[in-house]
Amino acid sequence: MIRQSWWKLLSFVLLMYVCSMGFIVKVPLLDGRLQQSVRNLFFHVPMWICMMTLFSVSVYYAVRFLRNPQTNYDLYSVEFARTGLLFGFLGITTGAIWANYQWGEPWSGDPKQNGAAIALLIYFAYFVLRGSMNDTDKRSRISAVYNVFAYCMLFPTIWILPRLTESLHPGGRGSEGNPGLNPDDTTAAMKTVMIPAFIGWTLLGIWIASLRVRLRIYQENKTSNG
């Protein structure tokens, strides 16, 4: 699957569509709050979707490693987490840029911003943990266990807690709505760009992660053979 090219082409086509139609598609006026910046829906939100997908793949391989300790599973797990972290970082940075113009300051201590930051810090600690151990077996095993913990922490930090409190983000009216999107603001025309954006950016993230995995496996084989 990771060596096939059809999904890479699909990602390219979708992102070309998103990057052009994302600017051209008609957006609702929404009493002048968001104006044109609502188009960030096609660029900022997919970063988080991509991050969640990559972290899910990462924890899947962590569990597989714990059931059957093979080096390749560990490599998959770490490289998908690394790329996921990159997309999370892009998400939080683009969010800060958007917030600066929408809410007046880059960081307003919004529950969703804080939750996302905590989730990212927990994943940063994953790499600190890995870096602190020289014994390969021990490192793989402990980091796989920590990976499961970090993934479990995603649930409260970005999916549950932000839904429970008032927030500047959409869906911040008590427990109602989704932390990332406001269904009232998203028209059918926007959805025709939003869904390809989610798929396209996610596939791009998977592509980058898969390249890193293949490089790591190559290096691993080279050191064990030569």
């Binding site: 060596r3 890479k8 990602s11 390219f12 992102l15 070309m16 990057c19 052009s20 600017f23 051209i24 791009l204 592509w207 980058i208 390249l211 293949r214 490089l215 190559y218």
Partner: peptide
């Protein structure tokens, strides 16, 4: 701006494709 962004993303994809081929 649309043209610029399309060029940037297309460039990134070409770069990734090259990397993919090299690793293959």
């Amino acid at each position: 701006v649309v043209a610029v962004i399309v060029t940037i993303v297309a460039g990134l994809f070409i770069y990734l494709l090259n990397l993919d081929r090299k690793i293959s």
